[in-house]
Design a protein around this nucleic acid. Structure first.
Lengths: 256, 256
DNA sequence: CGCCCTTTTGAGGCATTTCAAACATTGTGG
DNA sequence: CCACAATGTTTGAAATGCCTCAAAAGGGCG
């Protein structure tokens, strides 16, 4: 097999017990097939950190559902430039639209140990409208996320993009019952910078600034968000009413 | 009906005669249903310039295939900020992923008189794998386009983004047999600026600069591309080998 | 321990924005 | 049909946000 695949044994959680159950089509699929919410029937595959779950342009015959870990979706061009278009978490669907041919549209690279469930395309050939609509729901969610990201990059300053990024992560974790105000970043500063269309140094400075302002507390990759409300206000471009910290040049310009 | 709808009668082209045939799922759908490549069976609807084919969040029960004219896909947020995420041309599929629920992910606003064919979602309930795969193909194409756009915005300078934009339009027109080196821009400078994440003034200056360099020839919304090769080199960030014009500050920095 | 990669911090430059105003174009009502 | 308003486009000058370059400090891992 690919050298990427590792012996990593994530907890054999059944769909009915999975934290990400609501966000995952594997549960739908399983429910549909046997009634029991147990995705054990689907082939699993584990990847070590930095491995490629699949690469841009690759032809595949199955969708993967991220079950554990996290990943980045990267689009590249001929000149070697790369852009992270999304960060992926358990429950996310990988390689679904590649069903339409032309290969997968982005490379998927794990940010840590990760595991996926695989569902062959041929399953979708059975007449099963609800399965399709469940898959479309997952695709729709990702499309909306990309739209918001594009809006963030196109219309907002570095400060706002960065705050939005943290808030999105927070919401993402909250959606599955994890703490929204305290989590570990699975991605490097480099990745964050690329994702937000900024330089690494700018991202590093932003971490420092927001920390100094008391809006966040950073310790390497561990982040705490003392006040989501304040951070939201900051992300919206408001200059902060209650400055409980040294006042640096935190007011940012706003595009168009 | 909505006041947007007009009496505009675009030529009643059958699918088999349509310039955009290869890019259009309507042909697939028709072929599948009756054998004849004639989408006349599907309800048509015409829109005047600036009309909303559908608005973000709207719940719909059909996909639309753009048959004539052009449109922009716009994502907005609570604060009123708006971002154009795509320009749409005949053959493009609108509202497909909204099948997954949650409403359409972006507003679709026509840039000129336009017409669509409508295919109800319920058509997709019939077991018809090839129809699905054809639709997925259209979705995949749009996903790839968004990925490239994101890469362009995130990694390239204003000059490069602008050149890419023109080249993409050119390729788009070429793909259906129209002249790749001479066309009218259906969108305003404002729209271009928003799409590329730039200020209107910057776009205006870019038109001027590229024109002065001889890379393009602009006359209001009419554009001519004398040398696609030169424009491609310029888009790739190369400083131009044969300067057949006054040398302004055309060399641009490159991110990351 | 020492190498390598990531992260941080500083100083300076410049690409792009912002502000401002003239100009062109389109649409509208008298 | 023209005057007028509203909108879109261009151009100039100045400001600035973010990048680039440079270098040091901080972990991770053989």
């Amino acid at each position: 097999m690919a050298s990427n695949v590792i012996g990593f044994k994530h907890p054999a959680i059944k769909c009915c017990e999975c934290l990400w159950r609501e966000n995952c089509i594997a549960a739908d699929v399983s429910e549909m097939r046997g009634g029991a919410l147990d995705s054990e029937a689907w082939p699993r595959k584990a990847f070590k950190s930095g491995a490629s779950i699949h690469v841009q342009g690759q032809l595949i015959d199955h969708v993967s559902i991220l079950r554990a870990g996290s990943a980045k979706a990267v689009v590249g061009d001929d000149s070697g430039a790369e852009q992270i278009v999304a960060f992926l978490f358990p429950g996310d669907l990988l390689g679904a639209v590649a069903m339409g041919g032309g290969g997968v549209s982005s490379s998927i690279i794990t940010l840590e140990q990760a595991a996926v469930c695989r569902v062959p395309y041929r399953v979708f050939n059975d007449p099963h409208p609800t399965l399709w609509s469940n898959m479309m729901r997952a695709i729709a969610r990702q499309e909306r996320a990309v739209g918001r990201h594009l809006l963030s990059i196109g219309q907002h300053s570095a400060h706002e993009r960065f705050a939005y990024f943290l808030l999105n992560l927070s919401a993402r974790y909250a959606s599955c019952g994890l703490a929204p105000d305290e989590f570990n970043l699975p991605m490097s500063r480099q990745d964050i910078a690329n994702y937000l269309g900024l330089a690494v140094e700018t991202v590093s400075r932003l971490f420092g600034e927001l920390d100094a302002m008391g809006l966040i507390a950073v310790e390497r990759r561990f982040v705490r968000l003392p006040s989501l409300a304040d951070l939201e206000a900051y992300a919206a471009g408001e200059p902060m009413e209650n400055a409980h910290a040294n006042d640096l040049n935190q007011v940012s310009g706003q595009r168009i």
